[in-house]
């Protein structure tokens, strides 16, 4: 991606972003900067606009106002070029029921124009623990297995930026652990973890994660952001926070705002 050596360019730069559905506002002016290699975690109650924000960042939804730049390029003008560098895990698995796990990945590898994708597909299927089931139809998969495959799909083209909307939905504890390890690796933390050579850990990816799980979220976060009512209400570097202190902050910013029952969204 385009990088100017002189000054640090934010990988994701969001300015005054608004999104309205009719007269209902989902985002009311969000400003956000995510530096290259940084892992940002978004918290917030239901209806805070987290998913809307991720949909806009992933180019699936057009903002009503404001701008998004990714890698220094305007998302509104260069969506086609930027998509190549984005990996997205959303609520929906974005997969085909009537294709096998391997066929799904092959199909998307074709769309991303990957040359000789077979080793990459094999490595990813092994990494998410689905290699033994690679020839089975997705419709026969459990919720957790579908989610594992969705994660493999998002990593297929080795994206520079990962956008993850509650990636641990439906995962069994074991798979959640796997995902957690994978994310730590991609964000450049698990330096000595024995990942297969093709899952790519040479450089830290820029990651934006939406999650309900406070502890897991904080453990992969460089920076934590609380979104409520379509606005960023709190933003902090994550390393100097412990979970209990952060929960108090969360309740303070979200609980008292009538944006939902206190503590909603944080189990």
């Amino acid at each position: 991606m385009s990088e100017k050596a002189a000054e640090p360019v934010a990988m994701i730069e969001v300015r005054n972003l608004t999104k309205a559905f009719g007269s209902k506002y989902a985002l009311r002016g969000v400003d956000l900067r995510v530096m290259p290699g940084e892992s940002l975690v978004l918290f917030g109650p239901n209806g805070a606009g987290k998913s809307t924000l991720v949909r806009i960042l992933s180019s699936l939804s057009r903002p009503s106002g404001g701008t998004v730049h990714i890698g220094g390029l305007s998302l509104a003008q260069h969506a086609d070029g930027i998509r190549r560098y984005l990996g997205v895990v959303s609520h929906a698995p974005l997969l085909y029921d009537s294709l096998t796990a391997e066929e799904n990945l092959h199909f998307f590898a074709g769309l991303y124009n990957l040359k000789k994708p077979e080793p990459r597909i094999k490595a990813l299927l092994e990494r998410v623990g689905l290699y033994a089931r690679r020839g089975d139809l997705v419709r026969t998969f459990s919720r957790g297995m579908v989610q594992r495959l969705a994660i493999a799909r998002a990593l297929l083209h080795d994206p520079e930026v990962l956008l993850l909307d509650e990636p641990d939905t439906g995962l069994d504890p074991q798979a959640a652990e796997m995902l957690h390890g994978l994310l730590s690796e991609l964000s450049g933390r698990g330096a000595n973890s024995p990942g297969p050579e093709h899952s790519g850990v040479e450089r830290a990816r820029t990651i934006v994660t939406v999650t309900h799980s406070l502890e897991r979220g904080l453990s992969i976060a460089d920076r934590a952001v609380i979104l409520a009512n379509g606005r960023v209400v709190f933003e902090t570097a994550a390393h100097d926070l412990d979970a209990a202190a952060f929960r108090r902050l969360y309740d303070q910013y979200v609980g008292g705002r009538g944006a939902g029952p206190a503590g909603d969204g944080l189990p």
């Binding site: 180019s59 997205v88 974005l94 085909y96 009537s98 769309l111």
Partner: peptide
């Protein structure tokens, strides 16, 4: 309907494809 059910249309839209 097949494209919508598992959100795979969004998967197509995310790909760098015209």
């Amino acid at each position: 309907v097949i494209e919508q059910d598992k959100g795979s249309l969004a998967g197509l839209l995310l790909a760098p494809v015209d």
